[in-house]
Design a binder for these strands. Structure first.
Length: 420
RNA sequence: GGAGGCUUCGCCUAGUCUGGUCUAUGGCGCGGGAUUGCUAAUCCCGUUGGGUCUACUCGGCCCUCGAGGGUUCAAAUCCCUCAGCCUCCGCCA
């Protein structure tokens, strides 16, 4: 959620910033008016409550014979309070609902445009060349019996798969490798819950805007997280942190569940886009002054992880039109996939500034001043399935075997994959 | 799944049966000050979080006793729903 104060203090700047995301100025003006109505009503309700409270208190001190008339007068005050409270509750509900749908203000440096307009900042690793026709991950993994897509579909449906044999081992090795790198940079490893309450989904900004992409259990109202960003961010929901504790840095490992509604027919082959995948995710809580630096830091860890795997990829500055509701700025790593002859997203890191913190009520205690909202950031250390795709496609050889990058060898226990 | 106990302003705690004197007690911790010069002690003051107004580092008012409803002129206190913690039984990895 954005700060409602922005609409009071600097509507023009806010409107200009949000216009880049296609948000209408008239909507913001309506929101500002709604906020003013809310504040006026709060003042009225408070005044009425003060009167009623004083009247009640006087009854307690009054002699029994005086009470009858006083109680009657207090009853009328009570009714007045109730009427005003009803108005306030209505305005508040509308206020909450409509403000929750306003996306975060993009940072000025974020490029303009919509999906596909990302700016390539740099690339790393050598783009692989082959003196044979490179296979895609499905061919490579199926030939090695490292994946079972047919049975995934039989048991669970489209967009599910079994990783098997060396495919399964690859996951453990990649996960441990990525966690090790993140830990070296001060991130504490976490295995989080992946079923969460509505508050956690709301607090991280996935509700109400992304409701259609989230799984919800039928009888228990648990949401399945689409990323461990959700339980990691919500760890410090409703907390006041001491400034000395910051930065708080985690690296979570969890399955991720996504309905992929609206993606019908997109990326249907293989395991690029599935309903369930595993991901190692970094998450940081930092002082607001430090979030830009932290963003760069997380991005550099992502680059370290992927370049350490010998994977060629490019760093993309994501345009404002393609940001999630919470993000003020986002960088993706896109790895080259020889099977598709295309760069595809393998990681993503966002600075959500105070947007999640305001909804999560996660603040920093400031001695002798107003407490501050923390800034939160998230970034993929390693999305297992997509990392597997990039790795096997880029490091494949003519015979269908895959050279294991040196950094992964100790975790995998072998130098070559799929050699029968 | 069953039975019982519990949740108070950083931590511990009084208050709940019997609604008003709760503007929530006391201790610890923390911050500030005073006094005394001797590893220190003692005393005083302050110390939940939020909203809102404002002449916005003052102050006013409102909310906040796990959360949300309800009863009442009045709720920490009575009623309902939910969440969490603990103990025992059952089940289980």
């Amino acid at each position: 959620m954005i700060d409602p104060r922005l609409l009071r203090d600097d509507l023009d700047a806010t409107a200009t910033a949000l216009a880049r995301r296609g948000y209408d100025r008239a909507d913001l003006e309506a929101l500002r008016d709604l906020d003013e109505r809310r504040r006026n009503l709060i003042a009225e309700v408070d005044g009425a409550r003060a009167q009623q409270g004083a009247a009640s208190k006087a009854i307690g001190k009054a002699s029994p014979e005086d009470r009858g008339a006083m109680i009657q007068a207090a009853q009328e005050l009570k009714d007045a309070v109730a009427r005003l409270e009803e108005d306030l509750a209505r305005v508040r509900a509308e206020h909450t609902d409509r403000f929750a749908r306003v996306p975060n203000l993009p940072q000025v440096d974020a490029p303009d445009g919509v999906e596909g307009d990302g700016v390539v900042l740099r690339s790393f690793g050598d783009k692989p060349t082959f003196d044979f026709e490179p296979r895609d991950h499905v061919e490579l993994l199926e030939a090695a019996d490292a994946i079972d897509l047919a049975r995934g579909a039989k048991v669970s449906g489209a967009r599910f798969a079994y990783l098997k044999g060396e495919g399964a081992l690859l996951e453990f090795a990649l996960v441990r490798y990525a966690i090790d790198v993140a830990m070296r940079h001060g991130h504490v490893p976490i295995i989080p819950p992946v079923m969460v309450r509505e508050e956690a989904m709301y607090g991280t900004g996935f509700l109400p805007t992304d409701e259609q992409s989230i799984f919800l259990t039928r009888d228990d109202d648990y949401y399945l997280v689409g990323t461990s960003e959700v339980p990691l961010a919500a760890m410090h929901m409703d907390e006041l942190l001491d400034e000395a504790e910051l930065p708080v840095r985690y690296v979570g490992y969890s399955p991720c569940f996504r309905r992929e509604a609206g993606a019908h027919g997109k990326d249907t082959r293989g395991i690029l886009r599935v309903h369930q995948f595993e991901k190692v995710e970094m998450f940081s809580f930092v002082h607001p002054d430090n979030s830009d630096d932290e963003h760069e830091r997380i991005l550099s860890i992502e680059e370290e992880i992927f370049s350490g795997l010998g994977i060629h990829a490019q760093v993309v500055d994501i345009p404002v039109g393609d940001l999630g509701a919470s993000a003020a700025r986002k960088f993706d790593l896109e790895a080259w996939l020889p099977g598709q002859q295309a760069y595809r997203e393998v990681t993503s890191c966002s600075n959500t500034t105070d947007y999640q913190a305001r909804r999560l009520k996660c603040r920093i205690r400031v001695a002798g001043g107003d407490n501050l909202l923390v800034h939160t950031l998230n970034g993929t250390a390693l999305a297992v399935q997509r990392a597997i795709i990039a790795l096997v496609e880029q490091h494949q050889r003519a015979d269908g075997t895959v050279l294991v990058p040196e950094a992964l060898q100790p975790h995998l226990g072998r130098e070559v994959l799929f050699s029968r």
